[in-house]
Computed example of a mutant assay.
Amino acid sequence: MHYGIDVGGTKTEIAIYDPTWQCLDRWREPTPADDGEALLALLAGMVRKADRRHGGRGSLGLGFPGVIDEHGRLVAANLPGLRSFVLETALAAHLDRDFIIENDSRCFVVSETGPGGAAEGVMHAFGAILGTGAGGGALVDGRLLKGAGRFAGEWGHLPLPATAARRYDLPLLPCGCGLEACLEGYIAGPGLVRLHRHFGGRSTSAEQWHQAWLAGEGAARRARECHLALLGDALANVVKLLSPRVIIIGGGLSAMDDLVAALPAAMAEHLFPGVEVPDVVRSRLGDASGVRGAAMLGAGITTTA
């Protein structure tokens, strides 16, 4: 058996898979985000419970939001209780087996290029999550790219393009990472709402913006134009750096078919002749991708670069 754990700011999920990657069991527990010791104890307890329920000891992979730096510390705004821990060392003291830990966005791209994923078997892929945040992960030559500082793929913290900022008179917003005008604040779900309100709309959620856009509201149409320009520019930069064959879109905004369909043309505007626009596909496994990717990494399905 293979266990995957996806640690979120409010809920932590464990899933148990058989050797063919069929899900045998899964459940969620509230995340004690402010209490690191309680969170570590929760993770160990979930693993022991899985062992009892399935009569064995599964391999283990864990996905966390944010950046796990080169020193093993987690930089995640929604898990403040873990900031003082060297994560691998702290987990090793609570867990009775070997394990792999990874950023949840990189778990996502592993799952979606694995069996049954939207880009199954693809060796060069980029996974872009557009939900409450904007995370990403890359597969290069079939290997998960981590980089020296372990934060490769963090496209949401690329800077706002100056041309788009001037064209749409966008404010320079502070980012939770400590920088200013990171793309995440404009392209993720809450960012799309900010764009709508910037142009005079009144939505409070991405879903409300989408309904206004479908109804032809002017502010919603202007927000859509700006959002696509920002996404096209950002993903074109990813293409120029990594040359993926497929870009997989996940997160809440991926449910909007019209957004996914519009991305190739939006990227093409920012690519020079001769650079092929990659296929853009929506995640096939949805919310299950992160936890499944963690389990796959724990099982040694991919190597890391």
Rank of each mutant, 00 (worst) to 15 (best):
Leu24Glu: 09
Glu70Leu: 10
Thr10Glu: 01
Asp69Lys: 05
Val67Arg: 09
Gln22Asp: 07
Gln22Leu: 07
Leu43Thr: 05
Ala15Arg: 10
Leu60Met: 01
Gly36Glu: 07
Gly55Cys: 07
Asp35Phe: 03
Pro19Gly: 04
Leu43Lys: 04
Glu37Gln: 15
Arg28Lys: 14
Thr31Ala: 07
Ala50Cys: 11
Leu42Glu: 07
Tyr17Arg: 06
Ser59Phe: 05
Trp27Leu: 03
Gly45Asp: 04
Lys11Pro: 13
Val47Gly: 02
His71Tyr: 09
Ala41Tyr: 01
Ile14Lys: 00
Gly56Val: 08
Leu39Pro: 15
Ala50Met: 12
Arg57Val: 09
Gly66Tyr: 12
Pro19Tyr: 05
Ile14Arg: 00
Gly58Lys: 02
Arg57Ala: 13
Gly56Trp: 07
Thr10Tyr: 00
Pro30Glu: 06
Ile68Asn: 08
Trp27Tyr: 14
Glu37Thr: 15
Cys23Asp: 06
Gly45Trp: 02
Leu40Asn: 03
Gly45Lys: 04
Arg57Leu: 14
Gly63Asn: 10
Glu37Phe: 08
Lys11Leu: 11
Arg73Gln: 14
Arg48Tyr: 02
Glu37His: 09
Glu13Thr: 15
Leu24Asp: 03
Arg28Asn: 09
Pro19Lys: 04
Gly66Asp: 12
Arg28Gln: 15
Asp25Gly: 08
Thr31Glu: 08
Thr10Asp: 01
Pro32Gly: 04
Leu39Gln: 08
Ile14Asn: 00
Glu13Cys: 09
Pro32Thr: 07
Glu70Tyr: 02
Ser59Cys: 07
Leu24His: 03
Gly66Glu: 10
Asp34Asn: 14
Ala44Gln: 11
Lys49Asp: 12
Cys23Ser: 14
Leu62Phe: 05
Leu42Met: 10
Gly72Ile: 07
Arg53Ser: 03
His54Lys: 04
Gly66Trp: 13
Leu24Cys: 14
Arg48Phe: 06
Ala33Asn: 13
Asp18Gln: 15
Pro19Asn: 10
Asp69Thr: 05
Arg26Thr: 11
Gly66Asn: 09
Glu29Phe: 02
Ile14Gln: 02
Arg53Leu: 15
Asp34Met: 14
Ile68Arg: 09
Lys49Pro: 00
Pro65Ile: 08
Arg52Ile: 01
Leu39Asp: 10
Asp51Pro: 00
Leu39Ser: 08
Val67Pro: 04
Asp25Glu: 09
Gly58Glu: 01
Met46His: 03
Leu39Thr: 13
Leu42Val: 10
Gly58Met: 05
Ala41Trp: 00
Thr12Ser: 11
Arg53Tyr: 04
Asp69Tyr: 11
